[in-house]
């Protein structure tokens, strides 16, 4: 680097640049969280059931195999739109599907990927279903591209 460009100039770019962008990031975060998100995540439909379902999701480390809105592991199918894919976007159909599915695990088909049986109660399966249904309705800019997730 040319000698005219001194160390203190480099330091000032670092300090000024990072301060500016940290502040900008905070402003954008405030706007995203306080103005934009309430309209996009349907938080008015965040029922007790949905909240309990999130804990079922977490306590069994579902994200260790599945992705949810594209985040997580890539070993098993995307679940943010499983309500549409397997439940035909109908709460009752989806809950019945979930109940049958969770209790049928593991398949024990030799050589196939296996999902453990988490021994969830009917109530827990219902809560989990509600959580996944709520998740499917978040405005996520139209992702994923198709029903397969």
């Amino acid at each position: 680097m040319a000698e005219r460009f001194t160390k203190s100039m480099a330091r000032n770019i670092y300090l000024g640049g990072s301060t500016f962008f940290i502040l900008l990031f905070l402003v954008l975060t405030f706007d995203t969280q306080s103005r934009a998100m309430p309209e996009r995540d349907n938080r008015d439909q965040l029922t007790e059931e949905v909240v309990r379902g999130k804990h079922v999701w977490e306590n069994n480390n579902c994200v260790g195999c599945h992705s949810l809105m594209g985040e997580g592991a890539y070993f098993a199918p995307e679940l943010a739109n499983v309500f549409d894919r397997r439940g035909a976007a109908d709460s009752e159909v989806f809950k019945a599907y979930m109940n049958a599915w969770m209790n049928a695990m593991p398949t024990n088909i030799p050589g196939r990927r296996q999902m453990p049986n988490f021994k969830l109660t009917d109530q827990e399966i219902n809560d989990l279903s509600s959580f996944l249904e709520w998740t499917s309705k978040i405005d996520d800019n139209g992702w994923p591209p198709n029903i397969e997730g």
Binding site: A10, F21, L24, R40, M69, D140, P144
Partner: peptide, 21 residues
Amino acid sequence: AMALITGIIGTGHHFFWIGPP
């Protein structure tokens, strides 16, 4: 300087499909 100037707002590439505007 380059790392923080690009990387902080660059966090936005994770916000595409998880709800933010």
